[in-house]
């Protein structure tokens, strides 16, 4: 009986001891858990995991914010690159180029960062500055020299700078693309613009002629007929002594005549704008389809 009671007390003590030990261990285990930050979703490591998930999910704006938070506590070239690339993807090219710059020296990703830096500058659409930057030969990536050169020559199609020699422009592009780019070159160099002044003068001489000059043949004939008809009506009404109607048709004739001169000049401007717009659209589509002849870099 006494032995049984003693055994029970011993068992109880052992039980209590284990319980005490566990209660003592728990805070340490918790402390360990906290030190690994496995449950703190805002720890740098967890932020990085989450950022990488967002990046793969193409939620670049949120990914950029998470990468930025991570980089406040750690330094990592891949993360820096991904942050810059996220900014690039959401069209914040100035910020992207600044961030790519941070990887220029002492980084394994230096060459890729330099290429992306040039790409970021290209998409800022200040093509003159881009060409100056490419000519300076300061930040050029050795590995991607040819790509930057292609990008530099592509800029000539997107602004109104004088084109360089055809052979020099075509040289960096692949042979398969050269014939199409040569076509663009000729189109750009010899764009058939219509002069608004010529169109206006032609319409002043023969109503509708300016419109025909700008390719609006139907409009030109209609303008000629309408002006002639209203002039004839003014003449016949004056002849029949209908003064009011005579003046009404005279006014109408003047309106048609003046309107046609103005319309012809406007038509020439519209023609020129359309030619420019169509050309820009075609060139942009061509280069976009080929990613501007640049390699796809996504780390």
């Amino acid at each position: 009986m006494i032995q049984s009671t003693f055994q029970k007390i011993f068992a109880l003590r052992t039980y209590s001891n284990i319980l005490w030990i566990l209660f003592l261990i728990i805070p340490f285990v918790k402390g360990y858990c906290q030190s690994t930050n496995s449950n703190n979703y805002f720890s740098p490591d967890n932020r990085l995991q989450f950022a990488n998930y967002l990046y793969k999910d193409k939620d670049y704006l949120r990914a950029a914010n998470e990468f930025k938070e991570y980089l406040k506590f750690n330094s990592n070239d891949t993360v820096q690159f991904r942050l810059s690339n996220s900014l690039f993807k959401i069209g914040r090219f100035t910020e992207a180029s600044d961030n790519f710059k941070g990887l220029f020296f002492g980084s394994k990703l230096s060459e890729e960062a330099r290429l992306m830096f040039f790409e970021s500058n290209f998409f800022q659409s200040d093509f003159n500055s881009f060409r100056n930057l490419a000519d300076q030969d300061v930040y050029l990536p050795q590995k991607y020299m040819k790509d930057i050169e292609r990008l530099k020559f592509a800029t000539y199609f997107f602004d109104n700078t004088t084109l360089p020699d055809e052979n020099i422009l075509l040289e960096p592009f692949p042979v398969s693309a050269q014939s199409q780019i040569a076509k663009f070159y000729i189109q750009k160099k010899f764009q058939l613009h219509k002069s608004p002044a010529t169109a206006a003068i032609l319409s002043a001489l023969i109503p509708g002629a300016g419109k025909i000059y700008t390719g609006e043949i139907g409009d030109g004939i209609t303008a000629l007929v309408a002006t002639a008809l209203s002039a004839y009506l003014a003449y016949t009404n004056f002849k029949a002594d209908h003064q009011f109607r005579g003046w009404l048709f005279t006014g109408l004739t003047a309106f048609f005549y003046g309107g046609n001169i103005y319309g012809s000049a406007a038509s020439a401007q519209i023609y020129n704008a359309r030619i420019r717009f169509d050309f820009d659209k075609e060139v942009k589509f061509y280069f976009e389809q080929r990613n501007y002849f640049l390699p796809q870099i996504d780390l």
Binding site: Y41, F50, R62, N65
Partner: peptide, 11 residues
């Protein structure tokens, strides 16, 4: 809110 719900989904 979307960011934090996405964080919740992720973890």
């Amino acid at each position: 809110a979307v960011t934090e719900y996405k964080r919740l989904l992720f973890f």
